[in-house]
């Protein structure tokens, strides 16, 4: 049961998006998110959706896989919709009992939904197309400038990749400890929430003990292999920009320019606002 957990799930296939430099993808996600929150009219969102569709198409990842990530935030989406629908003041659309739905509320709810969905899709497409290792490499190199402020970027990246490497090992260990406890009559399935939480304590204690022991062993093994922090290390697989990365940057730049132009230009925004006002009348 515990093995179903997949963190930073990666979908293995061959595509341009998979082969892109992780730095491009990270910066791309950041820009995409900024763009999403700067749109002022529907044309901007249409552009965002179109861009997302293009990336998904290029990535060769089945849409089903990407929408799976949306299930996790279903609850948040529902709450957002409800709050926006019922609690936005403005021109009433429908009114019953004590509840009023306004035009503004409806527009706000739709906007929020589109934003949230695009946000989750945008970030999950990065983890789906980039191996965790590649991702940490990208973060290390992309945030390299932080070294000026004495942030140990290399060490943090090393910690992240070790953490990722130990997830399956620790899951296996948890499974083993749980089975050992089950064999001695522990009950993890029955009882109320408090009871079940209590039953997990005898699992967590040995798990923590073993995790600390592993960490000690690993630290010793790393020192024996001359690990002395991120400085002065060379890379076996250094990140090098290729031609496709340059092309991706150009496309990103074009997307940003278009976003600012279409999504924020007063003429277009004004045009949509006029339509909107006509509906209200």
């Amino acid at each position: 049961m515990i093995r179903d957990i997949t963190i930073g799930q990666y979908y293995q296939t061959k595509s341009v998006i998979h082969r892109l430099d992780p730095r491009v993808k990270l910066l791309g996600t950041l820009l995409f998110i900024i763009a999403l929150f700067s749109y002022k009219n529907p044309l901007g969102y249409a552009l965002g959706i179109a861009f997302m569709c293009m990336v998904i198409k290029l990535s060769h990842v089945p849409v089903k896989f990407i929408t799976k990530g949306l299930k996790g935030i279903m609850m948040i989406m529902c709450i957002t919709v409800v709050i926006n629908l019922f609690l936005t003041a403005g021109t009433p659309l429908i009114s019953f009992w004590k509840i009023t739905i306004t035009y503004e509320g409806l527009a706000m709810a739709v906007t929020m939904i589109i934003r949230l969905i695009l946000l989750i899709m945008g970030s999950s497409i990065v983890t789906l197309t980039t191996t965790p290792n590649n991702l940490t490499d990208g973060l290390e190199k992309g945030l390299g400038f932080m070294k000026v402020f004495h942030v140990p970027v290399g060490d943090v990246a090393m910690m992240m990749s070790i953490a990722l490497r130990f997830i399956p090992i620790l899951l296996e260990e948890t499974d083993r400890i749980m089975k050992a406890q089950l064999a001695r009559g522990a009950d993890f399935e029955n009882g109320n929430l408090v009871k079940r939480a209590k039953a997990l304590v005898p699992v967590l204690v040995p798990l923590f003990v073993s995790a600390f022991r592993r960490a000690g062993d690993l630290a010793m093994a790393m020192e024996a292999r001359c690990y002395r922090g991120g400085d002065g290390r060379t890379k076996m697989k250094p990140l090098v920009y290729k031609k496709r990365d340059a092309v991706a940057y150009i496309i990103l730049f074009a997307f940003m320019v278009l976003s600012i132009f279409l999504g924020r230009w007063s003429v277009i925004t004004g045009f949509f606002n006029n339509i909107y006002l006509n509906i209200l009348k």
């Binding site: 990749s161 490497r165 690993l218 093994a221 001359c226 002065g232 290390r233 890379k235 076996m236 250094p238």
Partner: peptide, 30 residues
């Protein structure tokens, strides 16, 4: 030095990356 527990001394997520870990630390060219 090679230690007892194989799980606690492999750092890389791919075999070749783990073998490359030592030389990376020594600053050997790519």
């Amino acid at each position: 030095m090679v230690f007892q527990n194989p799980d606690n001394q492999i750092i890389g997520q791919v075999v070749e990356e783990d073998v490359g870990f030592g030389p990376e630390n020594l600053g050997v060219p790519t």
